[in-house]
C-alpha cells in the first residue's frame, strides 16, 4: 500500500471517526444534562441533514447561512420535542422514556421519508471545488472540515462544562435533580437548553455527513457508532468520547482496507466489547469511588 493511500485512509478514518465522536458527544450531552439516553438522536442527525438540504436546495441559501440556520432550526426542534414529548414523561420509568425517544425517532424518520422522496440527495458546499491532491489520490477537503468542526465542538463543550456556570448547572441537574432545584437551578430551563444544544450538535453531524454519505432517511443509523464512541468515553468524558470515535473510525477504515469488509462491519462491536471488559468506565473513566 502506497504512502498516499495510507494518508488517504488516515484522513478518511479520522473524518468518519469525527462524525462518530460528534454523534457521541450529542448523546453524552443529553445524558449529562437530563439523564436521558436519547434514542431519537440519530434521527435528529438526519433531520439536520434534511433541513440543510431544504435550506440549500429549495431556499437556495449559501452554505454558511444554511449552516447557521440548520443549527438554530434543529435547536428549536429539540426544545419543542423536550417540551411536548419528553417533559410529560419525566417522572415515568426510564424504560418508558427510552421507548418514547425511539418512537420520536421513528416519527421523524417517517416524516422525512414521506416529505422528501428522493432516494439520496446532497447539497453544495464551498469545499466541492477545492481539491487536495497527494500523488494520484485526491483527499476530500470536506474531511478536513469535518475533523476541524468536531474538534472545535469538543473544545467548546469542554470549556462550557468546566468554566461556564450554566454548564455546571447542567451537570448538577443530571447528578441530582432535587439538589439542583435546591440551588435555585430552573431544571426545566436546563432540560430545554440541553435538548437545544444536543439537537444542534446532532444537526451539525448531519450537515457535515451529508456531502460525504448523502442525505437519506436511514442516515440516523449512525447513532450506533455514536453510542460506541460515547460508551468508550464512559458516557461522561468528552476527550474519551472523541478519542473513542476517532479510534473507531481509524480501526474501521484500516481494518477494512487490510482485512476486508466483514472486519469493518464488526469493528464497532468488537471494540465496544473489548472496552467494556477491560475498561468498563470508558477510556478515561475512573471507577466509581463515591462514599456517602
Amino acid at each position: 500500500m502506497t504512502t498516499s493511500i495510507v494518508l488517504q485512509l488516515i484522513v478518511a478514518g479520522l473524518s468518519s471517526g469525527s462524525i462518530y465522536a460528534l454523534v457521541g458527544l450529542g448523546l453524552m450531552l443529553a445524558f449529562k444534562g437530563t439523564g436521558i439516553v436519547n434514542f431519537a438522536h440519530g434521527e435528529l442527525v438526519a433531520l439536520g441533514a434534511y433541513a440543510a438540504l431544504f435550506f440549500s436546495v429549495v431556499l437556495k441559501l449559501p452554505y454558511w447561512q444554511v449552516f447557521i440556520l440548520t443549527l438554530i432550526f434543529c435547536g428549536v426542534v429539540g426544545v419543542l420535542l423536550e417540551r411536548t414529548l419528553i417533559r410529560p414523561l419525566m417522572r415515568a420509568p426510564s424504560f418508558t422514556i427510552v421507548v418514547a425517544t425511539l418512537a420520536i425517532g421513528l416519527m421523524i424518520k417517517n416524516v422525512l421519508r414521506l416529505s422528501w422522496q428522493e432516494s439520496v440527495s446532497t447539497f453544495a458546499t464551498p469545499f466541492d471545488e477545492l481539491s487536495l491532491r497527494v500523488g494520484e489520490i485526491s483527499i476530500n477537503p470536506h474531511y478536513v472540515w469535518i475533523i476541524s468542526c468536531s474538534f472545535a465542538i469538543m473544545g467548546l463543550l469542554a470549556l462550557f462544562f468546566r468554566k461556564n456556570l450554566t454548564g455546571k448547572a447542567m451537570q448538577a441537574v443530571s447528578q441530582n435533580t432535587t439538589a439542583a432545584r435546591l440551588m435555585g437551578i430552573r431544571v426545566s430551563r436546563i432540560f430545554s437548553l440541553t435538548f437545544a444544544v444536543s439537537s444542534a450538535i446532532a444537526a451539525l453531524a448531519g450537515i457535515l455527513m451529508a456531502p460525504v454519505v448523502g442525505v437519506e432517511a436511514e442516515m440516523g443509523s449512525v447513532i450506533l457508532k455514536g453510542f460506541v464512541a460515547a460508551i468508550l468515553g464512559g458516557f461522561n468524558s468528552l476527550p474519551g468520547c472523541v478519542v473513542g470515535g476517532l479510534t473507531l473510525g481509524l480501526l474501521e477504515t484500516f481494518g477494512g482496507a487490510y482485512f476486508g469488509g466483514t472486519f469493518k462491519a464488526v469493528t464497532a462491536f468488537v471494540l465496544l466489547m473489548f472496552v467494556l471488559l477491560v475498561r468498563p468506565h470508558g477510556i478515561f473513566g475512573r471507577a466509581e469511588a463515591r462514599r456517602v
Partner: peptide
C-alpha cells in the same frame, strides 16, 4: 444525605451553591 454533586469538584459544588 447532603445531596452533593458527586462528579463535580468541590469548587464547582460551592459555585453552584451561589447559583441564585
Amino acid at each position: 444525605g447532603r445531596m452533593l454533586f458527586p462528579d463535580l469538584s468541590i469548587a464547582d459544588n460551592l459555585q453552584l451553591g451561589a447559583y441564585r
